[in-house]
């Protein structure tokens, strides 16, 4: 049986979650609402027994600097290290890759679907990748319960890929996964957002109605979300909310039969932290 995508998740990757996690603060009143929301998600994911997580994230100047900043980049390594983003290296085990699966995805995406990704033999992973991993999977001392393929999207230096392009990349990714000969169960994590702005006078801007509408439509009408321009997202949800285009890669990778399982929203400080999950049978 060829590989298939069994689930997709859209979720925020706020760095303070990683700090709270490392300091054992996830059960404090400030973090418990978020922490509790992920308990059934981890149980559900464990039941799905995924082999690989394709994690769509953006690098925040941990590995890519502006001398060379790829629009789309994909990992093709056997393992990935943990980055020092400027605040020290988090005490997490390295992440196992699946180089053969990555190679297949690269060949399929580049040859058949004409997505000319930057291919990385070495990547050090940072909060954009690791916070979702912490929320979705429990790691042991030596590693994580899934292998991973990091898929990096430029959402910090305009011009960014369009929302539509991200949605199409997801659709291509679905075909690429399903043409892999090995019987892998794959989950796709689309990370980032939701509403937030981290600079300027408008620092701290959030828009819960926008976020709730986005959560509605990522389920019911993703094609409409793919029409959003960066300008519209930034005006309505803050400049840094453009990360949400990465959720469209995840959504594009799901079949029309995918059904929503979990949904949660929590906005304590400066970012609307959203969560939505889909099962694809």
């Amino acid at each position: 049986m060829p590989s298939r995508i069994v689930a997709g998740l859209g979720l925020s990757h706020v760095p303070s979650v990683g700090v709270a996690y490392d300091r054992g603060k996830m059960q404090t009143p400030a973090w418990k609402p978020l922490s509790d929301a992920y308990i059934p998600v981890r149980e559900w994911l464990a039941r799905l027994e995924p082999d690989v997580a394709i994690v769509v994230y953006n690098d925040h100047g941990a590995d890519f600097m502006f001398d060379q900043y790829p629009s789309f980049a994909i990992g093709a390594a056997e393992r990935y290290g943990i980055a020092d983003e400027g605040f020290g290296t988090r005490p997490l085990p390295e992440v196992r890759g699946d180089a053969e699966f990555s190679a297949h995805l690269c060949e399929s995406l580049i040859y058949e679907h004409e997505f000319d990704l930057t291919v990385c033999q070495e990547l050090n992973l940072e909060h954009g990748f690791l916070v979702p991993m912490n929320l979705c999977f429990e790691h042991g001392k030596d590693g994580w319960p899934v292998a991973a393929v990091p898929l990096q999207v430029n959402v910090i230096q305009h011009p960014l890929p369009t929302a539509r392009r991200c949605y199409k990349l997801g659709q291509a990714l679905r075909k690429a996964v399903s043409s892999y000969h090995e019987d892998l169960r794959v989950v796709v994590l689309g990370t980032g957002g939701m509403s937030h702005q981290l600079q300027g006078k408008r620092f701290g801007f959030m828009n819960e109605p926008f976020d709730q509408r986005f959560l509605d439509q990522i389920e019911t009408d993703p094609d409409r979300l793919a029409n959003l321009t960066h300008q519209q997202i930034m005006e309505q949800a803050g400049a840094e909310a453009v990360e949400l285009i990465m959720w469209l890669v995840m959504r594009g990778a799901l079949s029309p039969q995918a059904r929503r399982v979990h949904r949660h929203y929590y906005a304590p400080m400066t970012t609307g932290m959203g969560l939505i999950t889909f099962q694809d049978d």
Binding site: G61, M65, F66, D67, I156, Q157, H158, P159, Q197, Q199, G200, K201, R202, H230, Q231, M234, E235, G238, A239
Partner: peptide, 23 residues
């Protein structure tokens, strides 16, 4: 992109201007 009040949009012009700082 059109300017948004109270907001900096980090585009290539900003990236060129701030290259040394960011580096």
């Amino acid at each position: 992109l059109v300017p948004i009040a109270g907001t900096s949009i980090f585009d290539l012009r900003a990236s060129t201007r701030g290259y040394r700082l960011n580096k």
